[in-house]
Write a protein that binds this DNA or RNA. Structure first.
Lengths: 347, 347
DNA sequence: CCCATCTATGACTTCGAATGCAATTTTTTT
DNA sequence: AAAAAAATTGCATTCGAAGTCATAGATGGG
């Protein structure tokens, strides 16, 4: 068995020696320096064609992949961003879009989910420890927590939370405008006279914005007959809301305005299957968000659709811009939502 | 201005010097060695009470957080796992569960999404580069790609893909058993005679398993009147399926068996709102997965619910076990699904 | 009170890739 | 052909935390 070793066996022996193949291994195998290997992986690196070929051959044969952790340590760029989402279930599309767009740009996503108010502080500590280049937050943060990002020079972009009083970047959908469109539609085109407004969780800024605007706008239009009940964004809470409106008011209103689509589905189902009413003939229901199911024939929900793809793109772009150049001033981008199924409203 | 510096100003000056506070900074500030600081962050580290207090005081004042990247480099443990999912939209709960459970155990999730067959090879290269401790895959991989995990000693657990012929760990739901329950229910309890089977995408192993079992089981029970059409797991393809069944068969069958819930919703809506039929009175529709909306009153979909929480827990546990001890033999865990809304089937 | 036994601590090295700088080779210019 | 300029290459250092080892200090037994 003194036969000449083939390249393939050689490289296998080589690889077996240690767990991971490092740039030193490649260098040694190719008979060059480690620096040369490193430079081959850097675009614009000063390497001759011959050298590059030699190195790449060794890379192929050893199955070398640069260690992103080590690279991150020296370059102080992890090429990772953290995405912090509070409620993955309601907005899968958002995460999907963000992930795809970051990946497309060679940036990796470290995912953090906040279940019913897990300790945000602890999550943020993890974020600092992992040296992410930036963070997209689709959840609520306290002012002090936002301040921590500045202190550490970590770019931050909020998704769908606009802090009007703090200089911080955000991408959001115009809740006020959208809600106004819905209310106008119901009152002016639909001549609805009595209303119920179903708010979302009290700690959701977005929900509060939507609900407040709905109430304000209704008052502005001279509507007095309004009951307000609160939910938690879930389907079930939408169903409960109908019961509670019934209990409070004795009868159902002409229209129910929900702070999101999910609760609107709950309302519709409870009206139809709990009270045997027709929607929209007997009662109108409107939601907010424009999730997929809003377009299903069962619902044809009147809602404001958030332009998720454009918002995600904006968030990704803004974040990465600030990663490149972190002195860029914060910017708030507000997209208009689009009315869906507006024609199905009762006249 | 020769006043004595307060601790707070001191620490601020200190922090301003460099971007990141390192363990050396803490050591210098506390007047101890870097090793001591490191030991304070290691459970079971040999440190006196006095030392620990001194260090922790400095840590607090400087806002020090250990650099997980540097730690990962030396310990060869990144405390990160990769989660690769193909279709985020359909199974948000899975990701949500996985993420929560990993986080709970101090493990972080690097998310990779595969949109319509993005280059899996490239994704895997990224996975290797980031030195993740393990990978959960909820997508299809080629045998060669699976082999790469072994070569690199990276633990791998498949979620909801059982490769019967390859020794690899997986967690899945018993498709065959579940489908059999559904077919039995329809044929024996419901005395349905004619069927349509709507399959999912051709490249989905799970879809093929479900569809094949449905066909087999129907044949075994002596059913001959079956048409098969294919969809892509989407709501819209469920609607189309109804049209195609109608075109092929001239009339609608007694029951439609869909490879997932989403298509079942599409079928129901098309039957009800496109053909003005009643479900389940005129036509029965069954799905598979047991997503949230299956429980909504609009649908009350007969389906097999996957025990997502238990499956996610199992996947997390199995993966982390193999991270601790990577010579553990691969294991396949198959959970039984649970019939939902079975009582709503037409007799 | 001295030597043995621990405990606590710090100096130094390591992980793997990137980079400044100097040395070398190649190319260009005169 | 010599000198100058440019392109390559390697050496040595760096990033930040962890672990090894040797030593200073504390404790205890006789």
């Amino acid at each position: 068995m003194a036969a000449k070793l083939t390249n393939s066996t050689k490289s296998e022996l080589f690889a077996a020696k240690k767990r991971h193949v490092t740039s030193y291994d490649v260098a040694q195998y190719a008979g060059v320096s480690q620096s040369a290997v490193s430079r081959c992986f850097k675009s614009g690196g000063s390497v001759s064609r011959k050298m590059r070929e030699r190195v790449m051959k060794a890379v192929e044969e050893l199955g070398y992949q640069p260690n992103a952790i080590a690279r991150g340590l020296i370059t102080r760029r992890s090429n990772m961003v953290a995405v912090i989402v509070s409620n993955l279930n309601y907005y899968p599309e958002v995460l999907s879009q963000l992930s795809a767009r970051f990946t497309e740009r060679g940036v990796h996503v470290l995912l953090f989910t906040l279940d019913q108010e897990s300790d945000v502080g602890r999550i943020l500590d993890q974020v600092w420890q992992y040296q992410v280049d930036g963070v997209v937050v689709a959840a609520h943060l306290a002012p002090g927590e936002i301040e921590a990002f500045n202190k550490r020079n970590v770019p931050l972009v909020f998704y769908n939370r606009a802090y009007s009083d703090i200089p911080v970047s955000s991408v959001s959908c115009d809740q006020v405008e959208g809600q106004r469109i819905l209310v106008n539609l119901l009152v002016k085109n639909g001549s609805h006279k009595s209303f119920a407004v179903v708010s979302g969780p009290a700690d959701s800024v977005v929900s509060m914005q939507r609900t407040r605007e709905a109430m304000n706008r209704l008052h502005d239009l001279g509507i007095e007959d309004i009951v307000q009940v609160s939910g938690d964004y879930s389907y079930d809470s939408g169903r409960d809301a109908v019961d509670r409106v019934m209990a409070q008011r004795g009868a159902l209103p002409d229209a129910i305005i929900c702070a999101n689509d999910m609760m609107a589905f709950g309302c519709m189902d409870q009206l139809r299957y709990g009270y045997d009413l027709r929607v929209p003939e007997d009662v109108s229901v409107v939601g907010f968000d424009g999730v997929r199911a809003a377009g299903w024939s069962s619902f044809n929900l009147v809602t404001i659709q958030q332009p998720v793809d454009r918002m995600a793109e904006a968030a990704v772009q803004m974040l990465l811009d600030r990663v490149e150049n972190y002195v860029l001033p914060p910017e708030k981008r507000i997209f208009s939502g689009v009315l869906r199924n507006g024609a199905t409203i009762r006249n």
